[in-house]
Nucleic acid binder design. Structure first.
Length: 511
RNA sequence: GCCGCGUUGGUCAAGAGGUUAAGACGCCUCCCUUUCACGGAGGAAUCACGGGUUCGAGUCCCGUACGUGGUACCA
């Protein structure tokens, strides 16, 4: 089945109907990794055959997400390529030809049933044992189609442009089986599969026809998709057999689903449990419904890709942190799991934290700068910012945490956790800080050691334990009980700001 | 209902007939640190159930249960 001398070509084929969720990005990732690992091509194809669901901006959004993730396609409507068009709507005319060919060969037929006819059929055949009757061998001879109508009638209907679809004619008593790269042998009894519509009344193909025709025309060698497609695989297998031959068919890989806290992961889960579901922020232009993205939530693309890769795959060792390059090197489809995985936001955050920790300031700089500037922090000295990043990055889980972890290096805290010191505050401590300011003012040097030495000597002199004074000082400089060593902070913010912040707080405490 | 796929701690998972059933996240305890983190040391917690096969089963087979997907002129 695998054409060993042919170049690996894989595709991700989303429909431009809305945001790109976790599962979608992971499908992209596995496609990408497989292609790069095998020196092949990764193709992006836009499946825009459902004109009623088309959403403005959704296609551009997909490019943006792939770009952010660092998973850019080799061929796409945007990137070009030799196997275009890369948008299914632009291939409309040829689908009809393939569908007609199937009719001619007796593997498909015209159906003239109206929506109403179908509803009636479903109502009439509905029983307790069969709550959703299908358009299949049991009913097709009772419907209005080219199997039941005379050739003249069919001809006439066609000539008068009567709305119609083309349906596949499922054979009886046939075992349809194939080897999935993940599930191994999968088989279906053709009697349980219905006569799926291949070509819609508007002349557009359904997914079933389009995916087969396009994969053939684009010379796709391996087809990765979510497991929700597994049950329609028999239709695709048959189409390949009828149209192009099974020896031309790509190898299938049905990827396990990513689940939410209770079942299938939905954007609702994200809103409900407070975690992002889409790669990037997305606002539906129709409903104005907003769905949060991993990017804006504060995830690093490297962490996002890493955590997605590990949701359904691992290399068999204890290693969990992988760069994209390492993933390309280590990835193997054989080690992709069969079963769905529940998405765990806590673990996702851990991946991000690890990536922040192992990044150097330079790599984080532009993102952090942007985050701070968006919140009106003015950055004048980039090197200073870099040193701050080094100082606080171990405390950040999300990139957005850099704001609260570093604002106080740039401006005096807006709110002070006075309650943290007030209970143990007294005149002696107050005097200590006044004197401390005087001594700082007089000092010619300004570095961590000097500040700490002055502080400790004075504390000893006043007979107060330095430890009891450190928390108040922290509150004065930072505003809360967090951050790196206080003397380091004092050093960074400078003499003037340090003295100023101490004095300001002193006023408030002694009030 | 029918069809498909799946089932190792709360979550992600290693495991391919013989192991004290790895590891990670989360949780708890302690150490480091008179802040918060990082880091370090420990701890609690698992093979869905029932039958086989076998000297021996988390691993193989069959049932059951549960989960999940499909059952559209949506993808």
């Amino acid at each position: 089945m695998q054409k060993s001398n042919e170049k690996v070509r894989v595709r991700f084929a989303p429909s431009p109907t809305g945001g790109l969720h976790l599962g979608g990005v992971r499908t992209v990732l596995y496609n990408y990794l497989f292609a790069k690992k095998n020196g092949g091509k990764f193709i992006l194809r836009i499946e825009d055959t459902d004109q009623t669901r088309f959403v403005d901006g959704a296609e551009q959004y997909i490019y943006d997400c792939l770009k952010w993730c660092g998973l850019e396609p080799d061929e796409s409507p945007l990137h070009g390529g030799d196997y275009g068009p890369y948008r299914q709507s632009e291939r409309k005319a040829s689908y009809r030809e393939y569908a007609e060919q199937l009719v001619k060969n007796g593997n498909a037929y015209y159906a003239f049933d109206t929506t109403q006819d179908l509803e009636e059929m479903r109502a009439n055949f509905k029983t307790d044992l069969n709550p959703s009757p299908q358009y299949d061998a049991h009913v097709r001879m009772k419907m209005k189609n080219s199997l039941t109508l005379s050739p003249e009638e069919v001809d006439n209907l066609l000539k008068t442009n009567t709305p119609h679809v083309i349906r596949i004619k499922m054979p009886s008593n046939e075992m349809i089986s194939f080897t999935d790269m993940i599930h191994q042998e999968v088989s279906f009894d053709s009697n349980t599969v219905d006569d799926k519509v291949l070509l819609k009344a508007d002349g557009m193909p359904t997914y079933h026809l389009a995916v087969v025709v396009d994969d053939y025309l684009m010379k796709i060698t391996h087809a990765f998709r979510g497991e929700e497609w597994l049950s329609s695989a028999p239709v695709h297998i048959l189409l390949w057999k009828y149209l192009f031959g099974l020896d031309q068919m790509p190898q299938w890989a049905h990827l396990p689903l990513i689940l939410g806290p209770n079942g299938k992961l939905s954007k609702r889960d994200g809103a409900k449990f407070g975690f992002p579901v889409y790669a990037m922020n997305w606002t539906d232009p129709r409903s104005n419904e907003f769905t949060e993205g991993f990017k804006e939530k504060g995830f690093l693309p490297s962490a996002f890709v890493n955590l997605l890769a590990l949701l359904g795959w691992n290399d068999g060792t204890e290693k969990e942190l992988f760069s994209l390059d390492e993933l390309i090197h280590q990835f193997s489809i054989e080690r992709v799991h069969k079963s769905g995985a529940k998405f765990d936001y806590e673990k996702a955050k851990w991946f991000n934290q690890e990536w922040i920790k192992q990044s150097v300031a330079d790599e984080l700089l532009s993102d952090v700068k942007q985050i701070l500037e968006a919140k009106d922090v003015i950055i004048t000295d980039v090197d200073f910012l870099k040193s701050i990043i080094e100082l606080v990055k171990d405390r950040c889980v999300l990139m957005t945490d850099f704001y609260e972890q570093s604002v106080y290096f740039f401006k005096a805290p807006q709110t002070l956790d006075i309650e943290a010191v007030k209970p143990k505050w007294n005149k002696a401590k107050s005097d200590f800080f006044s004197e401390f300011c005087t001594q700082l003012e007089a000092s010619n040097d300004w570095d961590t050691i000097t500040i700490e030495t002055i502080f400790k000597n004075l504390a000893t002199e006043k007979n107060i334990k330095p430890g009891e004074l450190q928390l108040p000082m922290r509150i004065m400089l930072v505003g809360g009980k967090f951050g790196p060593a206080v003397f380091e902070i004092a050093n960074k913010i400078g003499k003037a700001a340090t003295i100023n912040r101490i004095n300001t707080t002193l006023v408030e405490l002694n009030h």
